[in-house]
């Protein structure tokens, strides 16, 4: 029996050209920041609705085991890893498992500078996460571009590409600061309506 080797279909130059085009299109579309998801704040003030006990249970279960996706481009990654290690433990919040596949995660802690080359991939990872999902922008580069904001290839903040729930300042933020940001996210989840109808509206 002979084995015949067949050459692959796409050459590397063709793939590079397609990817470059995708990046240029995303850059042209993302000139304004995406508004922050704060419907939960407005609803509470306007309608003053009390949460039902079903809501309370669902919110408690959602916030008690948020699983982060491993997404760690730059320096803040090591403060995130230090937060997950034994001195500042993330395991006591139920978050010690960092899921490699975004389909199994519900929190994205963006720990690093975002460049235009990476931006379509971040959008793809965010789209692969299942609802309900949250984003914590960690560090100065994630909030506004940070110390690199005037550079030609840096996106000024993740909220140009994906909607962000909590902003944690610092360069890099200390592990205690990241834990404070995670607690703020827990408070936000506690106060939000877990109504499925509202979640669909909230995402769009």
């Amino acid at each position: 029996m002979e084995i015949e080797k067949v050459t692959p279909v796409y050459s590397a130059a063709e793939l590079d050209r397609i990817e470059g085009q995708e990046i240029e299109e995303l850059r042209a579309r993302s000139q304004q920041p995406i508004p922050d998801p704060d419907r939960w704040l407005k609803d509470e003030v306007q309608r003053n609705i009390l949460l039902t006990s079903v809501d309370a249970i669902i919110n408690w279960s959602r916030r008690s085991s948020l699983w982060p996706a491993t997404f760690a481009p730059a320096c803040c990654a090591f403060e995130m890893i230090a937060t997950a290690a034994s001195r500042f433990d993330l395991s006591r919040f139920g978050m010690e498992i960092f899921r490699a596949s975004p389909r199994q995660a519900d929190l994205m802690i963006t720990a690093g500078t975002l460049t235009w080359k990476m931006a379509p991939l971040v959008k793809r990872i965010y789209d692969q996460m299942a609802e309900p999902k949250w984003v914590i922008a960690m560090g100065a580069c994630a909030i506004s571009g940070g110390i690199f904001a005037s550079s030609y290839s840096v996106v000024p903040g993740y909220n140009r590409i994906i909607p962000v729930d909590v902003y944690v300042p610092g360069c890099p933020p200390r592990p205690e600061a990241l834990l404070y940001g995670i607690r703020m996210l827990h408070n936000k989840i506690t106060k939000s309506h877990s109504d499925i109808q509202l979640n669909l509206l909230h995402k769009g």
């Binding site: 590079d16 470059g20 290839s153």
Partner: peptide, 14 residues
């Protein structure tokens, strides 16, 4: 010889 730090289709040399 192709671009390494920026993407294919970028205009200019920074």
């Amino acid at each position: 010889l192709k671009r390494i730090a920026l993407w294919a289709g970028y205009k200019g040399h920074p």
